[in-house]
Design a protein around this nucleic acid. Structure first.
Length: 278
DNA sequence: GTGCCTGTTACCTC
DNA sequence: AGAGGTAACAGGCA
């Protein structure tokens, strides 16, 4: 679930927690598979004694600039950060623990073990594989138009593909398509200029509001999204179509439909998101 | 208990 | 290039 707004919320909280400037004096890895770029013992050795210089977000990645390396963390579906005391027992799904020079301890837990930590001398090659960053100047109506016109895939899987636009996931794609009144099966090349404009503004809008609401937390389970401080997001109360199937569309009162597109649950309003090709 | 569903991505084949 | 399927994994839920 951590999509752009959730990752952005986490980055902001890590910065607000004054993590920048602190030095990692110990790293413990409890499940080796979480480390993507090397054996776990090489990772812990290499990251030790590096300070955190900068914390940023790129797409759904957390980007930690360290003294000598760059650490990328991808939370996938259930990755979470949490500050704990030094006597806190290692939790069942705790996979990494970082101890800093001032005694601060950062725990990473991830029940489904899909998340990945990658340590690079230079992460730019990896990050350059990502598409446009929504909140950058490079992402605008013209750029989106160019992107859509040069492909002919279904709009839903297109928006989920991180190599075109980085940061959108299943929730915010469904929400953006609803706001733009575009059917998820529409072909990218078939969108009219007006629709592209609506889509651009819808994407920016759902992401901005998602961040403002500090992300989306569905359900109450431990696999759910929680920020670093353990706080739930608030955006689930503002969803228009995602997991709203069977309920009335907030715009036209038709019943929201759920289907599967590209193996992903897809929610939309059959009335105000008509497939013009049907 | 059983079986199916899930917010992500990489990798495979066609 | 893109589509479609599968896999990684564990918990939630009916």
């Amino acid at each position: 679930m951590p999509e752009l707004p959730e990752v952005e919320t986490i980055v902001r909280e890590l910065i607000a927690s004054h993590l920048i400037g602190k030095k990692i004096i110990q790293a413990s890895v409890f499940w080796n598979g979480i480390i993507d770029t090397s054996a776990a013992h090489e990772f812990t050795e290499r990251i030790r004694n590096q300070a955190i210089i900068k914390i940023e977000r790129r797409g759904k990645y957390l980007v930690f600039t360290l003294t000598h390396d760059t650490l990328l963390v991808h939370l996938r579906m259930t990755g979470k950060f949490e500050f704990v005391n030094k006597d806190a027992p290692v939790k069942k799904h705790e996979h990494v623990r970082l101890t800093f020079n001032d005694g601060t301890i950062l725990r990473y837990e991830d029940p489904r073990k899909f998340g990945r930590w990658s340590l690079y001398k230079d992460a730019s090659e990896k990050l350059n594989q990502l598409g446009l960053e929504p909140f950058s100047l490079e992402f605008n109506v013209e750029a989106l138009k160019l992107l859509l016109k040069s492909h002919s895939s279904k709009i839903k899987p297109f928006l989920l593909n991180q190599k075109y636009i980085a940061g959108l996931g299943n929730i915010y794609v469904d929400e953006a398509l609803w706001e733009a009144k575009i059917h998820p099966l529409r072909l990218t090349s078939s969108l009219a200029t007006q629709e592209i404009k609506r889509l651009y503004h819808a994407i920016m809008n759902v992401l901005e509001i998602g961040i403002k609401n500090q992300g989306t937390s569905l359900g109450a389970g431990q696999g759910n999204y929680f920020s670093v401080s353990g706080r739930r997001g608030g955006h689930q109360h503002h969803l228009k179509v995602f997991r709203q199937d069977g309920l009335a569309c907030p715009r036209c009162k038709a019943i929201i439909t759920k289907t599967v597109i590209a193996q992903r649950g897809t929610h939309f309003c059959p009335k105000c998101q008509r497939n013009t090709l049907e």
